[in-house]
Every structure is written in C-alpha cells, then in structure tokens.
Design a protein around this nucleic acid. Structure first.
Lengths: 265, 265
DNA sequence: CGGGCTGGGTACGGTGTCGTACAAAATGTC
DNA sequence: GACATTTTGTACGACACCGTACCCAGCCCG
C-alpha cells in the first residue's frame, strides 16, 4: 500500500493531460504526485530515477528514443506538458523500451510511482481510458515521425521538429543548438545549419547562438506540410485543446494550403 | 447486448496471441469470433468491414500504414498470426489512424466486433492486460521500424522486412513482388531488385517471379543487424514464443555477431 | 497460338545527404 | 584580459538513392 503524500498536493494545471481529467480521477493521483526539476540532457529511463514511474511534464520537454544506443539514434517523439511518459505501465509492461532525455533548457515535471498509479487506474476506468487515449495519440505521433523521416526532405523534417518543440514550450524562443536538432533527426549538424539558413532567409525563424526564435509559425506549418498536424489535431479533438494554433490562416483566392507532396497524382 | 455465436466456436490455435490467453479469458472472446477470408491487397480500416472490430490474423499478414495517403507511404509495421489489429479500441479510440492492407497471398483471420470485445475486456483485467501488452509490443515494432528507416542502408531495411514477413508466414517461400516491398519501404522498385540481387549472390535468398525463398535465415539476421530482433525477443519474453528462430548460431572463434553500425565509437 | 499484362532487369543523369574537416564567432572561466 | 570551450559557418569530394524510362521474360486469357 502506498501512503498518500498528505502534506503536499501540487497544482496540476501545468500539465494539460492532468488538467483534462475529471476532478475525481485527478484526486486519485494528486496525493501521490511530486514535482521534480529536470536539468538539460538529463535522462529518464527505468533506472535513472530509482524506480518505475510515470512523469507528467510541466515546463520540461522530453525527447523519446529507444534505449538501445542513447542519443545516436533518431527521436521517436516528444512529450511535453500535453502528455505523459511511461505509458508502458498502463499496458502492463514494467520495463519500457524507451528512454527519454530532456531537451532544451529543462524544467519541471510531476512524477508518480508505479504502485499508486496502478492502484488509481484499477479504481477508475475513466482515468485508465484517458491515459490510454494519450498513449494512442503518442503512437500516432510516432507514426507520423516515421512517415516524415522516411519520405520528407530534411528541410521539412526540421520545420516539423521546430513546430513540435514550439508546441511544448512557452514563448516563441527555443533554447536549442543545431546539434541537438541534428541528433534528434539523425542527420549532420551542418545540414541543420543549412536548413536554418534557408528558414532565416524566408524570415520564418531567427537564430542566435543556442537560440531559435519562431517568427512566422503559419508559414512554418505550410513548410512542414502533411507530416505535421494530424496527431496534434486528433489530440485536440479527443483529449484537450492543443496549446498552439493548428489552423493556418484563411486562404486567399486560389492559394493552395498545403503544397501536396510532389509524388501525389 | 451482443448474442454469442453459439453454433460456431472457431479453433483459436491459429493465432498465437489468442492461444496465449488463459482459458477463461479466451472463452470470453471465442463465442464472438468469426473467421473471415482476406484476399491479396484487401484493406481493413474503420469503414471497410462495415463496423469497428479487432482482427486476429491466422494465415493472413497485414501491413499497417497511416490512413492518410494509402500505400504510397511507408509501412509502420506488420501484424500476422502473432498479433492483433485494432488496439486503438483498447485505448478508447474508435477511429484508429491506421489502415491495414493484406500482404502477399492473403489468408484468414478471426474477427470480433467492438461491442463484445469491450464487454469481455471490462469483465477481465487479465484479458485487457494481455491484449495491451501486445499493443506495447507493436509500439516497439514501430519504433524499431522508425529507427531502421532513418539510419539503415536500404539493403539492411530490405533484409529486415523479409525477416518480418518470414516470421509471419508458413514455410520459407513468400509470394511477394519487388514492388510490394518497395511500397512498404517507400523506395524504388528498381532499388529493391538490386538489393535482392545482392542477397541472391550471397545465396541468402532465391527469387523467382513474384516469389522469394529464404535460404539462409541466419545470415539474413546478421545482415539486418540491430534493427531486427529487439521487439521480437521481447514478444518472446512477455507474450508467447516467437514463431521463428531469433538466435543466431553459436559464434565461431573471434567472429563478431552483429556487425555494429559504422557510426559506433 | 497470339495478344495483353504483370513482374523483373538494366541504364542514365541528377541530387540530397553524408563524412570529414577546419576556422570563425560567441561564451564561459580563471 | 587571456585562454578554453562551445556553437556556428563553410567547403569538398563521395555516393547512395532517386525519377524516369525502356525492354524483356514469364504468365494468363481468349
């Protein structure tokens, strides 16, 4: 049996998924949540934080990868204040095949141990369903990552990744190095630099040292094309409002919204 | 309420996942299962088969893709007699973002409608857990597909895909065209032909018209490298015995099992 | 048996991305 | 202020893969 953490009931409004829960479901978790700080590049796997847990990011943003070879392999997806890490637990798997590392400058997250979490899920089917719905959404995010990595040109993949980071951050400035992006997309740092130059030329981004500012999110979405937006829109439909604008502006006459991939008939 | 299909209780031994269930859990499903034939290239989405359902393949093998653009986009994974289609249902999502199409020559599968399935899952937590554990395993398959598509050379990806098809087939001959492989991996048909020639030269495969025979599975595994095997091994550990051999033969002196990717330190 | 179709072999130029490398700029540290 | 470190700019050759195209071999069908 786990003891509720009676003296400490953290505010859960920093995580959209927690906030979307019914009051009664939320209170099954709240007494067991504790807020933890995460520094840049810190990693969260089965062993790192001591024990098995679920993590609801607040300001921290986590990049999910396979455990196999650290950050030399591509990102599977991002989890920020819209989601949760550790869905494997919900599926009856203790040791996930994933490893998450903190992107950008770090931040806080709410953590709950496996025991109390599973107890809570056993008590409430709706809680279980809500968390699992997010797992499905992450699956879709991964699928769309897979598609993007397989068929899109690098420029498009970079645009997509920046949008994904933007969604999970506050403000329009990301504390981010080219190298970090390169490792997430499994490409050369130099290639990322070149893509950024194109985007800067188009006045879509502005880059300073270890700092990227989004100037024109709408055109960034146009550039990212099909690979961005589907999973996010579904999140908005099924779970909670998406933290950023997903709709491009109204079309002017004759304008084509998403330039369709060249290989469409 | 759904009426059990009393006059027809199909043999479930054709699907490893069903076979791995406890008797009591299996019987929650069996009365509602019906065996359906699936022809080549047939596709199974939310709409195709009338209503929402889960599908336990027997001899049929399904290739899972995003719904977005049909088979012009890469495969997310394969589901054969080791798994089940329609995990989204378990996560409380009616309309999955995926679409599955029959690979190779087609075959049969056992289907159950959403209603009876969810009833059964509500009754048995262990049933739910077993099915969800497979969902997690498919997630891992997808992750490893993502990794492979992103970092591996085409030859390795082809090797991997052939192994995945082999695992889900009977015998060592796959009824398969180069074009089918090309579409799954999102590459040119001609590139697949070239890879097959290399593999034929190495006496690992033999190709005839629309027919590929695996001659040396072990060396095929060596060629596929890291990207193949992790998800399959975990399936074997957590769910049921894997249908094919996953262990390469004992090493001879000084031999290196998996040639590590070139980019390892 | 002959025509049509599907599947496979092969070629050619184009190019996006890679690996590597080195230098310049920005920042942190003593 | 001098030095080390991190981050970014830039270059060059290599090559895997791409798009496209055309022809031929098996196979089905009338």
């Amino acid at each position: 049996m786990s003891k509720p953490n009676a003296h400490y009931a953290p505010d859960i409004r920093g995580n959209l998924l927690l906030r979307s829960l019914a009051q009664s479901d939320a209170w099954l978790l709240i007494p067991h949540l504790s807020r933890l700080p995460f520094g840049p590049r810190e990693s969260v796997g089965r062993t790192s934080c001591g024990s098995v847990q679920m993590i609801f990011p607040e300001t921290a943003v986590f990049c999910v990868r396979q455990t196999l070879l650290g950050d030399r392999q591509p990102a599977l997806g991002l989890v920020g204040h819209e989601g949760v890490l550790g869905w494997s637990l919900l599926m009856g798997v203790e040791e996930s095949f994933t490893l998450a590392t903190v992107e950008m400058q770090g931040g806080t997250a709410l953590s709950i141990a496996a025991g109390p979490l599973l107890e809570a899920c056993a008590k409430s089917a709706t809680l279980r369903a809500n968390l699992l719905r997010y797992a499905d959404n992450f699956l879709e995010q991964m699928a769309s990552m897979l598609g993007s990595n397989t068929i899109d040109a690098l420029e498009r993949r970079v645009a997509r990744w920046i949008l994904m980071l933007h969604d999970r951050s506050q403000g329009d400035t990301l504390l981010l190095t080219h190298d970090e992006v390169a490792r997430a997309l499994h490409t050369r740092r130099a290639s990322v630099t070149e893509c950024f130059h194109v985007l800067e030329g188009e006045k879509i981004l502005r880059c300073e040292r270890a700092r990227v500012t989004i100037c024109d999110r709408e055109r960034l979405m146009v550039l990212a094309g099909f690979s961005y937006g589907a999973a996010e829109a579904r999140y908005a439909a099924e779970i909670a409002p998406w933290p950023r604008e997903l709709q491009p502006p109204p079309l002017s006459q004759g304008q084509v919204r998403f330039s369709p991939p060249a290989w469409l008939p």
